[in-house]
Design a protein around this nucleic acid. Structure first.
Length: 915
RNA sequence: GCCGAAGUGGCGGAACUGGCAGACGCGCACGACUCAAAAUCGUGUGGUAGCAAUAUCAUGGGGGUUCGAUUCCCUCCUUCGGCACCA
């Protein structure tokens, strides 16, 4: 048997020396980058581009797993196929390297995350090269590289400047044992993912991104894409747009309120049921509740106490607790009454935690007759229920001027009525929440913000600037006012953005990146702050406005941040990576002497977005984006949002409004036991180990043969052996052909018609299958073809046909194909099979000489008609049918029956209908 | 509860816009090679009846459209994935 290890190392070395095999050149051809002169450099400007993207991995310490291998090989096969078809293919790879596992490992081993990341990425890269993944390594990027996250930070600043980021005190999931705030995805069943302790709630000041501003655009933009319905639908569901109305209800006894706000606004999707409102409910977090609790006059002391107790209890409940007990409604009467604008009825306002503060206005109008939750609540507390809709007749009832209308008509009419009176308006509400962007961890991009307590204290001064009042004699005030005015003028930041975040200013863009400093320990602090808060050298800085001492934000960004724009970074990778020479990158973390770094950075500072428009325009959008189902909602939505934002900012080419055109989700590979692979179950398959045993090509082909690319499949070594047998058979078959061909003094044999038919059918079907990511059937057809060709005891195959077979298998089995190519291709053609042209179908050989037509009587196949005259098949319906009727078997079935109908599907079948 | 995907031999799975269901692979059985085993090669392989030709039943259940349905429509069941007190 052939020694696959020898072959693999031989070609790995060769490919390493010939990056032109997989390099993708942008609109500007980089001839000087190519050190090999034998090979022709194609003119990429005339080539059509295609951008194939695999989600970049998190380089964990355990290396490349089968899931990675599966999805990456899937992308690689497509990229190789497209390259051979003559496309200029961009197929890049990089590292989404910020994240908790590395941080935890660093804590445990007392090592630097930077170092661990370098080791892990080196390991991943090596494993990927072995798997023959044809990435353009010149474009490799790493989200933890300061040169990279400089731009992640830059994007954050742009969001801030546009008012799309704000600082907000909000409850987060808190693990009392790890003493750390957890992201939602780190909470599993209400427990901390790491230590398993019960998660509680804690208020922490967080940066929040207003993704909700883009809710409509994110729905709208899907039209520009070719995602499968499943993905589009889950994005739409996640955004969760509901159309309805805001309605203001006057508060009857509002004079008891401290702030004397005299109305309560609700959101409803059923304004048509307004006459059925019998009570209102506000969330415990609603502003109105605070006002009631601060006011002794509203109720008796007992009532106030009751309200306070209820609210306190509700606010301390975690989300889990609140939703888990959803059957049993709780609540307390607020002491206030509202007035229904349609009939001036006085209705009680209740407080209950079944109303969410984060949705709509945090308050609802309750129509117990037509909403299950309202009904539960009304029954429990003995509240009135008024029917306003007749289900059978589908008509509105008991609603004065709406009576007799349908839901929809009534909705239209009442909204118009409300709008005319300025007490309501048509609006929409979304399930999508603003995006909490702060993490109290070390291993993430530092958020490039500065807080000045001096300016913060002078918040009111800022406010007076907005009002253009300057009536103070305070020296400090006047000074800061002038500085702020200058600052606003210089940066173009809207004063209102600064007002919403008192004392917070973005780092000057020139000073980016804010590099993660090295710390002694990576454990979070007792108060839940990032370990960065302990580094004095990092925190201390100057206020960009008043120049006094200020402090840096010590929170870092979430994992999503780096992956929001990486598909853009690949297009301009050389520019991104070149900003910091590698040597500087390595030393940069050793101290926080930012001035020094700044100077170096300024030398290489280029505005990459504007400087790279050509590249972005040439490569964008991603034509095929391959990733896991688990990212079909969040990652896809977040990165689409950032793309749309950058597009609105004008830094992206106008032509593409969406980052990704097509989304393919890859399947999941289960262990041999049909269970999800996990160390604890001991069912983990390591691709490298399997490759050591059978060779990389066997692993690649097996992975592609297991089943449809997007389905869940269990690992099965027996099936893998089948693939191995096929590959051996394939090699043997080609080698035999070659020997024939050599024996006959290299005379080019012509393949016979039968062979030509098989080969050309194969080209057609393999091309179609690869195009549609139907790798399992593509391989099946190769198997079938080799089986049929082996069965033909003919003279042999022509050189061209042998080459065709090798080319067809090349995307899937690159080593084997390259080895065979080197043997077959002694005389002419490209040095590498991967630089050869994908074979074309020769239609003249596709015509079958004999055609078998099924003959059915009454829809049941009773016989077969073999036709040799091809002309006959297409042109002559009657002749074919008559021949069919002449068949002995068919005559038998027709018998005395009367023929009612005769159907002929050209080349396929005849159906004779009796009765 | 809502949204989505999927149900085909012993198993993984094929079947283009409705046109011979089960391609390809695994497994199994028998045979060849072998002292023997493994590996390899060959033949067969949906169920039932039959020595056989052949017949008949079969794509989760039921119904419908059609000359003809794995494919289209309705309905029910099951499994998996996501969301979930969203007004």
């Amino acid at each position: 048997m052939t020694d696959f290890k020898l072959i693999e190392s031989k070609w790995q070395e060769y490919w390493g020396e010939h990056p032109e095999i997989y390099n993708s050149n942008g609109p500007i051809t980089n001839n000087q980058d190519t050190n090999n002169k034998q090979l022709p450099i194609t003119n990429n400007q005339t080539k059509k581009k295609i951008y194939v993207l695999n989600e970049f991995p998190y380089p964990s310490g355990s290396g490349l797993h089968v899931g990675h291998a599966f999805s990456f090989v899937g992308g690689d096969v497509y990229a190789r196929f497209k390259r051979m078809q003559g496309y200029n293919v961009l197929f890049p790879m990089g590292w989404d390297a910020f994240g908790l596992p590395t941080e935890n490992y660093a804590i445990k081993m007392k090592r630097k995350p930077q170092e661990i990341t370098r080791e892990n990425t080196d390991m991943f890269r090596k494993q990927m090269k072995r798997l023959a993944l044809s990435y353009d390594w010149d474009r490799e990027i790493n989200t933890t590289d300061p040169a990279y996250y400089k731009w992640t930070q830059w994007i954050f600043i742009q969001l801030f400047k546009k008012g799309l980021v704000y600082k907000k005190e909000m409850p987060i999931n808190w693990c009392p044992s790890c003493k750390i705030g957890l992201a939602n995805e780190e909470v599993v069943d209400g427990k901390c993912e790491r230590c398993g302790s019960e998660v509680s709630r804690r208020n922490i000041s967080q940066w929040v991104v207003k993704i909700t501003n883009y809710a409509d655009k994110l729905i709208e933009g899907l039209k520009e894409t070719n995602f499968i319905d499943k993905v589009k639908q889950s994005q739409i569901n996640w955004i969760g747009k509901s159309e309805g109305a805001h309605i203001k209800f006057s508060i009857f006894n509002f004079q008891f309120l401290k702030d004397k706000k005299n109305y309560l606004e609700v959101f409803t999707t059923r304004p048509d049921t307004l006459f059925g409102v019998t009570f209102m409910v506000v969330a415990p977090e609603h502003d109105l509740v605070n006002q009631i609790m601060n006011n002794q006059e509203t109720n008796s002391n007992n009532q106030i106490e009751e309200i306070k107790n209820y609210v306190k209890k509700a606010r301390s409940k975690s989300d889990m607790e609140r939703t888990e007990l959803n059957k049993d409604k709780t609540g307390v009467f607020s002491g206030l009454y509202a007035i229904n604008p349609v009939n001036n009825k006085q209705i009680p306002i209740w407080i209950s935690d079944f109303v969410l503060s984060s949705y709509g206005t945090g308050a609802i109008m309750s129509v117990p007759a037509h909403d299950d939750r309202d009904k539960d609540f009304a029954k429990k507390f003995g509240l009135e229920i008024i029917d306003v809709y007749n289900e059978e007749e589908k008509k509105v009832i008991n609603s004065e001027f709406l009576n007799g209308l349908t839901k929809e008509e009534a909705g239209q009419k009442i909204i118009k009525w409300l709008e005319e009176k300025y007490i309501g308006e048509r609006t929409a509400s979304y399930h999508l929440r603003d995006w909490i962007f702060s993490r109290q961890h070390y291993w993430g991009e530092p958020i490039p913000m500065i807080h000045c307590s001096k300016c913060s204290m002078n918040h009111n001064f800022q406010f007076s600037i907005f009002n253009f009042q300057s009536n103070s004699n305070d020296k400090d005030f006047n000074e800061i006012q002038d500085k702020l005015k200058n600052y606003v003028k210089k940066t173009g930041i809207d004063i209102r953005v600064l007002e919403n975040n008192p004392g917070w200013y973005p780092v000057e863009e020139k000073q980016l990146p804010i590099v993660l400093p090295e710390v002694e320990a990576y454990e979070p602090t007792d108060d839940g702050k990032s370990p960065l808060s302990k580094i004095e050298g990092f925190i201390k800085c100057k206020c960009p406005v008043c120049d006094k001492e200020a402090i840096r934000e010590t929170d870092t960004m979430p994992n999503w941040a780096g992956s929001d724009w990486y598909y853009l970074a690949y297009c301009m990778a050389t520019k991104v990576n070149n900003q910091l020479p590698i040597t500087k990158k390595q030393t940069i973390t050793n101290n926080q002497d930012t001035n020094n770094i700044e100077n170096k950075l300024n030398d290489v500072f280029v505005d990459i977005f504007s400087d790279s428009k050509k590249e972005l325009e040439y490569w964008g959008p991603v034509d095929v984006y391959i990733g896991g189902d688990e990212h079909n909602v969040l990652h896809l939505l977040y990165s689409r949002f950032i793309y749309q934002f950058l597009w609105d900012l004008g830094v992206l080419p106008k032509k593409n409004k969406e980052p990704y055109y097509k989304r393919i989700s890859h399947g999941v590979i289960l262990g041999p036991d049909g269970q999800r692979m996990s160390k604890s179950k001991g069912n983990v398959i390591v691709p490298e180990v399997v490759a050591d045993k059978y060779g990389v090509d066997v692993v690649r082909m097996y992975l592609m043969f297991m089943g449809p690319f997007d389905s869940t499949m269990a690992w099965n070594e027996n099936t893998l052996m089948g693939v191995k047998r096929f590959l051996d058979k394939f090699i043997k078959f080609i080698n035999n052909q070659e020997t024939n061909f050599n024996k006959q003094s290299k005379i080019n044999i012509a393949s016979n018609k039968e062979v030509k038919l098989i080969i050309n059918k194969l080209i057609k079907s393999v091309s179609e299958d690869l195009e549609n990511f139907k790798y399992n059937t593509a391989i099946a057809k190769l198997m079938e073809a080799i089986n049929s060709l082996s069965a033909i005891q003919s003279v042999g195959l022509s050189e061209e046909d042998i080459k065709t077979l090798v080319k067809l298998i090349a995307p899937m089995a690159p080593y084997t194909a390259e080895e065979m190519w080197s043997q077959v291709n002694e005389k002419n053609g490209p040095v590498s099979v991967h630089l050869s042209d994908w074979p074309e179908v020769d239609k003249k050989y596709l015509v079958e000489e004999t055609v078998v037509i099924a003959v059915a009587v009454d829809g049941k196949v009773r016989g077969q008609l073999i036709i040799n005259n091809v002309e006959l098949i297409i042109s002559n319906k009657d002749t074919v049918i008559n021949k069919a009727k002449d068949l002995e078997q068919i005559k038998k079935w027709i018998g005395e029956g009367k023929i009612v109908k005769e159907i002929y599907v050209p080349g396929k079948m005849v159906n004779i209908v009796l009765r």
